Simulated scan of single mutants.
Amino acid sequence: MDEKISLEAQKVVVTDIRMPFWSMVVFMIKWVFASIPAMIVLSLIMSLFMLIVVALTGSIWDIQGMLEHGGPSF
């Protein structure tokens, strides 16, 4: 009854995972659907970041003036 519980970390090495093919296909489809909201959030964050960068550096590149003169003059 007086067994000591060992809280030491044990290392485990996984050498093989056996999973039926169609179960893996279903898992990957679920994974794709789960990643869609993450991609939407990341694209909104990147859009906000680019908006801030262009707003801060737009006057340096004269982006506002390009619209008044008919576009860039390369």
Rank of each mutant, 00 (worst) to 15 (best):
F49N: 03
G65E: 06
F33C: 09
M1V: 14
F49M: 06
I5H: 07
L44E: 05
S47Q: 12
G71P: 00
L51G: 09
A38M: 09
L51S: 14
G65R: 08
M50K: 03
L67G: 09
S23P: 02
L51C: 07
S47C: 06
G65W: 04
S73A: 13
L51K: 09
I17A: 12
V54N: 00
I40C: 06
T15F: 05
I63H: 07
H69C: 03
F21M: 04
K11G: 05
F27G: 02
I36S: 02
L48C: 08
W31M: 09
V41C: 03
I29T: 11
G58L: 02
I40Q: 07
M19E: 15
V13T: 15
S6V: 08
V32G: 07
K4Y: 10
M39G: 03
V41E: 02
G70E: 05
G58K: 06
P20F: 06
M66C: 07
M19A: 10
M24Y: 15
W61G: 05
K30Q: 12
S6P: 01
V32L: 10
Q64C: 01
S73V: 15
M28Y: 15
T57P: 01
G71Y: 03
D62H: 15
V14Q: 02
F21I: 04
G58W: 03
F74R: 04
I40T: 12
F49G: 02
W61F: 15
W22V: 06
G58T: 03
L7E: 09
I52G: 00
L44V: 08
S59T: 08
V14L: 06
T15G: 11
M1A: 14
M50F: 09
E3H: 13
V13S: 10
F74A: 08
F27W: 12
I52D: 00
W22T: 08
T57Q: 03
W22Q: 05
F27T: 07
I52S: 00
V13L: 10
I52C: 01
M46Q: 12
D2Q: 12
I60Q: 11
K4G: 03
I52E: 00
I36E: 01
A55C: 02
T15H: 10
K30D: 07
F33D: 03
M66I: 13
G70P: 01
I63K: 05
